[in-house]
Structure formats: C-alpha cells, structure tokens
Simulated scan of single mutants.
Amino acid sequence: MNPFPWPEFVASLPWTALAVVLVLALTFAVAVRQDRHSVMDVAWGPGFVAVAAVSWFLSAAYGDDLRRLLLLVLTAIWGLRLGVHIGWRARDGHEDPRYKAMLGSAPGSRNVYTLRRVYLPQGVVMFFVSLTVQVGMFSTGPVGWLALLGVLLWLTGFIFEAVGDWQLARFKKDPSRRGTVLNTGLWRYTRHPNYFGDAAVWIGLFLVTAESWPGVLTLLSPALMVWTLAGKTGKPLTEKAMSGRPGYREYVESTSGFIPWPPKRR
C-alpha cells in the first residue's frame, strides 16, 4: 500500500477552499438580488458537492479509485437531493422566519451583518466537515468491510432524511392538519428523522474514509455535523419553534429526541 500523499493533499486544500468561497459568493449575490438570504440553505448541500468534485479531480493520480468514486457519488446524491428539496420548499420566494428574526435586529447593513453571521461561519463549517471526504479522496488503502458498513449507514441515513422530508411535506400540504403535530411514519420513532438521517449520512462517509489511514483523523468532521444538528442549530431551534403547538409536549414525552426508537406508551 502506498503512503498517504501528504504534499499533494495539502496542495489541494486552497482549491477546495476556493470552491467553498465561490459557492458562497454566488449564493450571496443571488441572495442580495432577491433580498432573501435563506437561499444559503439551498446552497448548503450543493456546496459539499462542489468540494467533493474538486477534491475528486485533484486526487485522480493518488487515491484509491473505488473509494474516490464512492465518496463523490454518495456526497453528490445527498447534497443535490437536499438542495432540490429546500429549493422546492422555498419556491414561494419569501424569507425564512429564522432569517427574518435575525435580520430584524441587525446593526448597520443587513447584507454585511448576514455575511459575517451566516455565510462566513457556514463556509468554515462546510470546509471543516468536508475534510472527511477530502482526506478520503487521497487515501490509498483498499475498500473493505468498514467502508461497506459506512455505505449501509449512509443509505439508512439517506432514507430517513429523504422519507422524513417527504412525509413532512405531505403533512404540511393537508389543511386539516394545520397547527397539529406530525407523529406518524418515521416521525413516530424520532422527532427529527431528517436531522438523524443527515447525521447518519456523514458518519457513514466518515467510515468510508476511516478505513484507510489517515482517515480516522477526520473524526471531528462528522462530530461537528452531529453536534450542530442535535445540539446547536437543528433540533434545539426546531423544538423551540414547535414548543407552543398543541400536543407537542405529549409528543416530546413519548417520542425519541434524535435516535429512532419505539415510542413510549402513554
């Protein structure tokens, strides 16, 4: 097995960072034109796809071809589906309430404030989380059972995320359910099947990378994604917004907060 090509990997980092900057710059330009900064959510998934594509191209002569292809395809399927889903959900052209609340108290220029509070932090997170894919692209070891386990975990997460989003979209389209709580389907087993699925996807990608040294060193990349989803901006903000809805307290008491589990009997 060939050693990890550290010089070539380090040389690729400015190019993948440039991919993040270009995606965010284009997104910012669109947001300013539309006066709607929630388009950043649409660009989140495709931003990872751009990083994976640049890293795949630059690692062509160094990494294991099967692992490179797996990481590119799995990242692309996840990122593009997420971008299309959020874009379709926001097709009415209105600003997301979360961004409205944040921009309502923005000192000075709203665009400059959003650039500092949204685009810059999300760009840093995007680059750091994607390191698990970037390192995997240059890893030289063969693909084995741990990578297979990672693919299976990725598939589980992707199903939870995609099906959970679909069930929620159907629920919101039904006028008779307005103001109620979705507690059927995957939402019966976890209050956040989409966030859990997202976390499982990135842990799966990490396992694909971690099978070959130094992929294991990127453990903090999926850890940051899981922490963000479960403890920072995903689950906590959603539950805060839902807390006043009738029946939500009972839903919290009976349903797992993140990891899918059979509901408690009331």
Results as ranks from 00 to 15, higher is better:
P5C: 02
P7E: 09
F9G: 06
F9P: 06
V10I: 13
A11N: 05
L13M: 13
W15L: 11
L18C: 01
V23W: 03
L24C: 06
A25V: 13
A29S: 13
V30Q: 12
S38F: 01
S38C: 13
V39L: 14
M40E: 10
D41M: 01
A43M: 14
P46L: 07
G47F: 00
F48V: 01
V49P: 00
A50E: 00
V54I: 12
S55W: 03
S55Q: 07
F57D: 01
A60T: 15
A60N: 04
Y62E: 00
Y62H: 14
D65P: 13
L66W: 13
R67L: 04
L74Y: 02
A76G: 10
I77F: 11
I77W: 04
W78S: 06
G79A: 09
G79S: 12
L80C: 09
L80H: 02
L80Y: 06
R81E: 06
L82I: 14
A90T: 10
R91C: 05
R91K: 07
H94T: 13
D96N: 09
D96C: 10
P97Y: 10
Y99K: 03
Y99Q: 02
K100A: 08
K100C: 09
G108S: 05
V112W: 12
R116A: 06
L120F: 08
P121R: 06
Q122E: 08
V125S: 15
V125H: 12
T132C: 12
G136H: 04
G136Y: 04
S139F: 03
P142Q: 11
L148E: 10
L149M: 12
W154K: 00
G157M: 08
A162M: 11
V163K: 01
V163Q: 03
D165M: 11
L168T: 11
L168G: 05
A169D: 15
F171E: 11
K173F: 00
P175V: 11
S176M: 08
R177E: 11
R177A: 10
R178T: 15
R178Q: 15
T180K: 03
T180W: 02
L182S: 08
L182R: 00
R188N: 05
R191T: 13
R191H: 01
P193L: 01
Y195D: 02
G197S: 09
V208G: 00
T209D: 07
A210N: 09
L217H: 10
T218D: 09
T218K: 06
L219T: 08
P222S: 02
L224H: 09
L224E: 10
G231A: 04
G231Y: 12
K232V: 12
T233M: 04
T233Q: 03
K235V: 14
A241N: 10
A241E: 15
S243W: 09
S243Y: 10
R245K: 14
P246V: 08
G247F: 00
E250N: 12
Y251H: 05
V252E: 15
V252T: 13
S254W: 03
S254P: 08
S254H: 11
W261G: 02
P262N: 11
